[in-house]
Each structure stands twice: as structure tokens, then as C-alpha cells.
Amino acid sequence: MEGGAIVNDQLGGKATAAKPRDATAPMTFGESYLAVPDLFPARQSGEPWGPERIVLHFAGNAYVCEGLSPNQATGLRAKFGSLARDTLDGPRPAVVVRIFRVASSDFVVDEREWEFEFDLDYARDALGVAGFHMMARLDFVPRLSAALWTSEDDLLVERSIFENLLRIVVAYHMLEQGGVLLHSAGVADERGARVFFGPSGAGKSTIARLGIASRRSVLSDDMNALRLERGALVVEKLPFSGDFGGSADAVQGFFPVRGLYRLEKGAAYATRTLRPASAIAALLECAPFVNRNPFRYEELMRNLEDLHERAPVQVLTFAPNESAWEGLEARHVPSQVA
């Protein structure tokens, strides 16, 4: 009789620019970043930075950013380009993100280099975030909204303070909509997009570059949103920085998912189908910001099980040359269940 096997994977929850602090570290929420952690805001209120308002449109949703200073608004418009508009459109309710001004003395003052780590504090109806020169909260009731308190004007955009919060907001928004934000590379052509995920160093950027070399388009090699569009599983690039985040090779819009692939290092092209438990565990590993939230565990697992029903996961190893894409096309099996 073969003994039960245990395979360990890590819930890294890592984003390119920012990552949650190790939960095993003996610290209370925010004490590395906030001068007085007990004064973390209990609700979304405070002094806005300014009167400016921008609406960001992506992933089938709208994110209304209020309370911006003129400098911050200029920075966001420059960063998000055509995704940043002045008006709402579309049927779905928007997610409001409020920007408040606080003093630099609200944060721990020391000589550290700028850090992109942050603490997360999980509760049933809210999520607390504390980081370098910022603190934020997401409230899930009555609907998802967020507030950010920061001492930084120009640096809101330059140091990715806003972007790092937006990643978290989008992760929870996708969760509520039956999808998932996946640390992944998405590569598209006229027939749809393949999504490649795995831990850092598994080859996401490499497979994306090989896709470009074979005349395909990259959505993102950092984070993509898997969501349902009229009942079909689609993937959409998110406007977050990665190697391809701001490049001309990155495309906008959403694409039907042609395949989900977990990348593993290997010397030659090979694929194998993962059994459901291993597939869902692999997806869970790459779902940042939500995969360690005990209050959203059931919701996340339901979404991942549904996702896997629609697009079974294959393991892909490949040599870093054009044979990877030749192999994928030669062995393509339609992924979505009709």
C-alpha cells in the first residue's frame, strides 16, 4: 500500500512590485509602517488630497478614484493613458477608491530605502493594508470600496503606492465576480489567449517573449484577470507594471481562454494534464492578496473549481526557443467545456 503523498506548495501571494510580509514574522498589523497602529482608520474618512476625480476602465469594470490632487491626477492620467477617463459608462456599478491626505508623521520614520512590502489584516467585512507611507482599507459591505491614506503627493504614482492598492482592489473585485486575479503571463492571437502561471522564475516572461517572437501579443507577464464575460471564461490584461506592462507589445481588451498552463522548468517541450486537486492547488498558489484570507477561502475555492471545470490545467515545460509555441499549436486541445 502506497502511503499518502503530500506535496507542498507555497501561497506566495507575490506581486511584481509589492508583496505581503511573511505572516510568520512575530509582528502585529502595521507596526513596521504606522507610527500608531491602533489609530488605523475604522472607516473611510479624512481630508482628501484634492478635488480631482478619474475613472479607470479595465477588466470590464470601472474604478472611480476620488480626492486626488492635481499632481496625482496628472500622474494617473499619464500612467493609465486611454484607460483613464472623466466619466463612467457601462452597466456595472463602479468601485470607488478614495484618496486621503495624512501627515508623514503618521508613518514610521526611519532611514529605510523605499519598500514595496505591506501588511494585510483580514476581517470578515474589511481588509486593512499598511505599507510604506500608506495605509488603506477595503470594505466589502454594502459593496466593495476602498480608501487610501498617504502622505505622498507626486510619489503616489511614481512609487506605485496607488498601483499597489489597485492590485489588491482588483483581486477582490475579480473574486466577487466569480473570477480570479492570477499572477501569470497571457499571450494572445486572433483565436484567443493562453495563460501561463507559476512561481517566480518558472518562465512567464520567457514564454511571453517567445510569443512575441512568434508574432503573438502579450497581455501581461505579471498579472491577468480571469473572469466570466457573458458566461464564457476570458482573460484580460491589467494595467500593472511587469516586463511588458507598459510596452507597445501589450494589448488591451479581453480574450477567450484557449488554455491554462502551469509552468515548470524543463529542458524540452512537454505537457501533461494536472489532476483537479493539484491544478486547483497550483492556481491557489498564484492568486495573490486573496489566497491567505480566511474569510474569502470558500469563495476563492469555488471560483477556482469553476475555472478548472472550464479550462483544465496542463503542466508545460519548454526549451527557451520557438519550439515552445510550435508544440503548443501542434498539440492544441480546446480547453473550454461547451
Binding site: M1, E2, G3, G4, A5, I6, V7, N8, D9, Q10, L11, G12, G13, D22, A23, T24, R275, P276, A277, S278, I280, A281, L284, E285, N291, R292, N293, P294, Y297, M301, E305
Partner: peptide
């Protein structure tokens, strides 16, 4: 969680996910 006869065990507090085969389940 039992998925297709195999098991997933998640220890969120320490950031670990483990897969159990049928015997382990």
C-alpha cells in the same frame, strides 16, 4: 477539501497548500 478523490489542505496562516492522494484523503 476533497476534489475529485484527492485532497487539498490549505494552511493559510503559514502560506502552505498541500495535495493529498486518494490514500491520504
Amino acid at each position: 477539501r476533497n476534489i475529485g478523490g484527492e485532497g487539498i489542505v490549505v494552511r493559510q496562516a503559514v502560506g502552505e497548500v498541500l495535495v493529498l492522494n486518494e490514500v491520504g484523503v
